[in-house]
Simulated scan of single mutants.
Amino acid sequence: MTGTDAAASFDPLRPRLARIAYRMLGSVADAEDVVQDAFLRWLDADRGQVREPEAFLRRVVTRLCLDQLKSARARRETYVGPWLPEPLVEEEEEEDVEDVTLPLMMALERLSPLERAAFLLHDVFGVPFEEVADTIGRDSAATRQLASRARTHVRAARPRYAMPKEKGLEIVAAFFAASRSGDMTAFRSLLADDVTTWSDGGGKVHAGLRPIVGVDDNMKLYTSLARFFAKEQSRIVRYGMINGLPGFVSVEPGGVLQTTALAIEDGRIVGIYVTRNPEKLGHLGAVH
Rank of each mutant, 00 (worst) to 15 (best):
E92K: 15
A178I: 11
R235Y: 10
R59A: 02
D96P: 10
T101W: 04
V249G: 05
A21P: 14
F187C: 09
K231N: 10
E131V: 05
T143L: 00
A230R: 09
A147F: 02
L17D: 00
Q68C: 11
H283Q: 13
D193W: 14
T152Q: 11
A207N: 03
L102M: 06
P87E: 05
E130A: 15
S140W: 07
L102R: 03
L66I: 15
R158C: 13
G214C: 07
L64G: 06
A142S: 12
P82C: 07
W42L: 03
S9E: 12
M1H: 04
T223Y: 13
A118R: 01
Y239T: 10
D99K: 15
V215E: 04
A156P: 00
V270N: 07
G285E: 10
G168D: 07
W83G: 06
M219V: 14
T135K: 07
M24A: 09
A7Y: 15
G48E: 09
P85C: 11
T143A: 07
D99H: 11
T101E: 07
V215H: 10
G285H: 12
A74Q: 13
A286R: 13
E91L: 14
A29N: 01
R73W: 13
V89C: 06
A162H: 11
G271Q: 04
H122T: 10
I136T: 01
E109C: 07
I20S: 00
L169D: 05
D183Y: 14
S112I: 15
L84G: 03
V237S: 12
M1W: 02
Y273W: 08
T185E: 10
E93Q: 08
A29E: 00
P53H: 08
D193M: 02
I269C: 03
W198G: 07
S199N: 09
V249L: 14
G81W: 15
G168L: 08
L40P: 00
E32W: 05
V256D: 02
F129I: 11
A18S: 08
E131R: 05
L84Y: 03
A8S: 15
G285P: 09
A117Q: 02
R41E: 12
V251K: 08
P113L: 04
D5G: 04
L281T: 01
R41F: 11
F39G: 10
A156T: 03
S27L: 02
W42E: 00
R149K: 06
M163R: 09
F56R: 12
Q258M: 13
K167R: 08
V270L: 08
D266K: 15
G255H: 06
A286P: 07
R210D: 03
V274W: 11
R63Q: 14
A55C: 11
G247R: 06
V50T: 10
A150C: 03
R149F: 14
D46S: 14
L191P: 00
T196S: 02
G126S: 06
D37C: 10
S181I: 03
P15H: 02
L114W: 00
A226M: 09
L104K: 14
I264Q: 04
L209C: 03
A29P: 03
